[in-house]
Amino acid sequence: MADDRKLSEEKRANLISELTEEILDTAASIAEPEEDNENLANMIQDIRERLSFEVNVLLNEAVTKLSPRKALERIAEVPKRTFQRFGINFRAQHTLMFVSVIILIITGMPLKFPQLGISKFIIVDLMGGLENSTLVHRVGAVGLIIVGVWHLGYIAFSRVGRRDFFLMIPRPRDIRDFFRTLLFFFGRRASGPKFGRFSFIEKFDYWAVYWGMVIMIGSGIIMWFKEWFPKYLYDIGREAHSDEGLLATLAIVIWHFYNVHLNPDVFPMSWVWWHGKLNEDEMKHHHPLEYAEIVEAESREIIEEKDRVADTGSGDA
């Protein structure tokens, strides 16, 4: 991509020097009284067209940078092959989840810190009072509960979901990977461990959400339907909801936002949540074992296909 940009910059530089020459020529021709006006008009028209072309190129680049659709098209243009990491079902779950969680954090966190000015701003000025914000919080809660049930169905009934769930189960290898990563960080190893489809970090993220969902939905239901429970359980539920909510918010802001927003590799945002694709480089870098498996499986298929063709060929002969 860097090469592409360089190319277009060269092209632009050329165009600008051409334009400059033409402007100088035009100036010279104006100085000559015998040049006719028609020639001049043509030249001005020409300059105008070239200028508008230049502006278009600039605008196009800006739009491509900002628009996810154009970004997708650009990725599609890249001749390298892509790998579909997350299917549409999984991406939809994630989208519903983050929309719900953002709603829940905005309407929930102010209740943990009611003295703060920003809390009062959000609840009183933005939401128009606690009566409204608690209602919005319940809407977010329903969203989160739906995601929870949906995901349980997904890992039970979808083939991909089931496969991914089993790959998510922590193994001794993950502990080893963790310590290898630390050794790598301390410079005791030249490279970090090689990961399969899910690294130990991703497994941690996944199970952290599991834990969080159980605590938040469980304690939330106790508070929502407090008439079904004794007071001390309500008190425990409220404390747990409040503290786990803070933990979840901090984890999302410090851990997850770094992964998908602040990390220099993906800044300002990784688009994987939207298109679910990794390119070959990313695949090799982040999930080398999975990449190796895929490539091996494919080459095996190709070899088998060749053998089959060869077999049938010899059979014919």
């Binding site: 407090k226 008439e227 429970f229 004794p230 007071k231 001390y232 359980l233 309500y234 008190d235 425990i236 409220r238 404390e239 747990a240 503290d243």
Partner: peptide, 23 residues
């Protein structure tokens, strides 16, 4: 049952029971 439960309890106080340990 609910209305007879303890009020004016603090999670910062051991006597509040469960929520103290949760905190």
């Amino acid at each position: 049952d609910f209305v007879r439960g303890a009020v004016h309890t603090s999670a910062k106080d051991k006597s509040s029971g469960g929520k103290f340990y949760v905190r």
